[in-house]
Amino acid sequence: MSFTVDALTKSLNVFHAACSPCNNCDIEILDALTPRYDLERFGIQLVGSIRHADVLLVTGAVNKKVVHRIKALYEQAPKPIIVIANGSCACSEILFRDSYNTCGPLDKIIPVDLYIPGCPPRPEAIIAGVVKLLNAVRAKDKK
């Protein structure tokens, strides 16, 4: 395994960008850190700056006011970065696709590595998604 992938896939530092969500996804992300699910025991934690992040975790249907900021966040991120679209809004916009103020699902704006659907996805679903992604990244690197 290459050094970069090895370093990337251990103790994920997650930067969480809320792009006009309804908060439910955000609460479930925090829930995954609190005692019942306790992701912090694997070294997974939220960080304050995108420049320290391994993962850009995006929730919500991206609206017009936020779209430039999420692009800027992606540009500022140290590469390689894993982008996760968390929740149905970020994956497909659900009922907000008809809105006058949203700018398409996340993968039309920045490249996305992992989709976690659900409204909101349960903490177990978030954990399962991240585990699958890490395995995929490592398997791809071995080839």
Binding site: A18, C19, S20, N23, D26, I27, L30, R69
Partner: peptide, 10 residues
């Protein structure tokens, strides 16, 4: 703000 990754609306 507008981002406070802990939670809630920006």
């Amino acid at each position: 703000g507008p981002y406070h990754p802990l939670q809630e609306e920006p």
